[in-house]
């Protein structure tokens, strides 16, 4: 096996260990628009003093309970550290979220593939550049939607 694990083809359509319930309606926990990191503004009212989730684009699709367990109660910015351009802008926006929007915490959610750790790096750099300090948490999501780790960094 060689090549980039971030784009390697894997098929787990045969997965059988499906616990959980499909009944009932789950409302969206999204409370803002836009959400893409190039489109959001740190001045937006929905960021002020909030807990912010910086999520890798793929994570919301992988994680079955993304809305209920991670988006609920938070504001969000999404990005792809592999494909997006001008990522220095992201660092500046995170700095501004911390210093100007005075966000309460930052949770960066990434996929387990190595290239996705770039997003955690962006979060760290933004947090280091900021003069205010806040707790930053990293959540790593497995390809099959399992949480591999969740820790303060």
């Amino acid at each position: 096996m060689s090549g980039c694990p971030g784009s390697k083809t894997i098929d787990f359509s045969e997965k059988t260990n499906q616990e959980g319930s499909e009944t009932g309606k789950r409302p969206s926990q999204l409370r803002q628009w836009p959400i893409q990191m190039h489109l959001v503004s740190p001045q937006a009212p929905y960021f002020q003093g909030k807990d912010v989730l910086l999520a890798a684009d793929c994570s919301a699709f992988a994680l079955g309970d993304f809305h209920k367990d991670y988006l609920k109660g938070k504001s969000i910015g999404i990005a792809c550290p592999k494909l997006d351009s001008d990522q220095e802008v992201y660092i500046e926006k995170i700095k501004s979220l911390i210093d100007n929007a005075k966000i309460n915490t930052l949770t960066v959610m990434i996929m387990q593939v190595p290239c996705c750790f770039g997003l955690a790096q962006i979060a760290k750099e933004g947090a280091e550049k900021a003069s205010r300090k806040i707790p930053v948490k990293q959540v790593v999501v497995g390809l099959e939607g399992n949480i591999l780790s969740e820790e303060w960094i």
Partner: peptide, 13 residues
């Protein structure tokens, strides 16, 4: 909760 961790961090600071 994550929110509480942020609050405690701010209050301690």
């Amino acid at each position: 909760s994550t929110t509480q961790v942020g609050e405690i961090f701010r209050k301690c600071n």
